Simulated assay, not measured.
Amino acid sequence: MGAGGPDDEDNRWPPWLKPLLRERFFVQCKLHADSHKSECNMYCLDCMNGALCSLCLAYHKDHRAIQIRRSSYHDVIRVSEIQKVLDISGVQTYVINSARVVFLNERPQPRPGKGVTNTCEVCERSLLDSFRFCSLGCKIAGTSKRKKQQMASDSEDSYSSSSSHARYMKNKINNENKVQSFSPSTPPPTPASYRTAKRRKGIPHRAPMGGLIIEY
């Protein structure tokens, strides 16, 4: 698929990222409901088959599995785990329980605090100045929106250019038509002008030295 095609946006991100962000974690595992370790806080990046509990990992040996954690009822993931498989630049990190983490999804803030100079480009949550997004989900939404705006801007520029060219050509044709309509044309000959031209041809010429030639 060429650049700008419908699959272009999805190819920017790993196939597991969007399913991961949509998944519900910290629910009871249906397969291991009788176990005290049945809370689903794991995710297999290779299988992408939903939230897993620690017992489910026995079926995902040698797979890439990551652990989801909780902070104030929001899902987070340790930076040390996610940065191995995903570019998280621009996403603000937080230190929770002595570990640096990033949030999976947006956490809208009713109103930014006083003196805040930088907010998330998507949900407007207060951020440190060096970051653009508060979560992985906001990064996807923000970069996708920016790309669409850029494509729309490029399309408008192209349309504006073609419209200007069309207006220029239209004005040029109109001006040429005006010049042709106001240019004087050679009038057709009239009987009077025809007689005048004929009379001029009959003017006699004098002989050299001003004399008359008389023949005997």
Rank of each mutant, 00 (worst) to 15 (best):
N175R: 12
R22V: 00
H32G: 09
N174R: 15
Y194L: 13
Q83R: 10
P19G: 05
I68V: 12
G113W: 04
P188M: 05
S72Q: 04
T117C: 02
K61P: 07
I88D: 06
R111G: 02
R111E: 03
F26V: 09
P184K: 12
S144W: 07
R12I: 02
Q150E: 13
K178E: 13
S80M: 11
D157T: 08
L21T: 00
G90P: 15
S130T: 13
V116D: 08
K170D: 04
P191V: 00
I173K: 09
N41R: 03
S130M: 07
P110E: 03
V101R: 10
S162L: 12
C134N: 03
P188G: 03
T143G: 03
R107N: 07
V95R: 09
S80Y: 11
K18E: 01
Y159K: 14
M209Y: 12
S89M: 09
K178Y: 06
L212S: 13
F26E: 02
T190D: 05
M42V: 09
V95F: 08
S98F: 05
V27D: 06
L45N: 01
N175H: 14
L57K: 03
A33E: 13
S153R: 14
Y194F: 07
E9A: 05
V85T: 01
V101A: 08
I88R: 09
G211S: 05
L57T: 09
A3S: 12
S135D: 10
F103H: 06
C40W: 01
P6C: 01
K37R: 03
K198M: 10
Y43G: 05
H165V: 14
H60K: 08
Q180K: 11
F26M: 02
E23A: 12
E106Y: 02
Q28Y: 08
R100Y: 04
S160F: 08
F103T: 00
N41T: 11
L212T: 14
Q180N: 12
V85C: 04
K84D: 02
A197G: 08
Y59P: 07
G211F: 07
F131G: 05
R195Y: 15
R24S: 06
A33I: 15
L127N: 09
V76K: 02
K37T: 06
R146W: 08
A65G: 12
H32E: 06
G4D: 00
T93I: 07
Q92T: 09
N105H: 07
N105K: 11
P187S: 07
D8H: 13
F26N: 11
R64E: 14
E23T: 14
A33M: 15
E81F: 10
I173F: 05
N49T: 07
V179R: 14
V102M: 01
N175M: 10
M48V: 14
R12V: 06
C120I: 01
G211K: 13
L45S: 09
R70E: 14
S164H: 08
V95D: 13
I66G: 02
D129H: 03
S158M: 07
P204Y: 04
F103S: 01
G90V: 13
S89A: 09
S35C: 03
R100D: 04
R146A: 12
L104V: 04
P187W: 03
V79T: 15
S126R: 04
R167P: 14
G202T: 09
T93N: 11
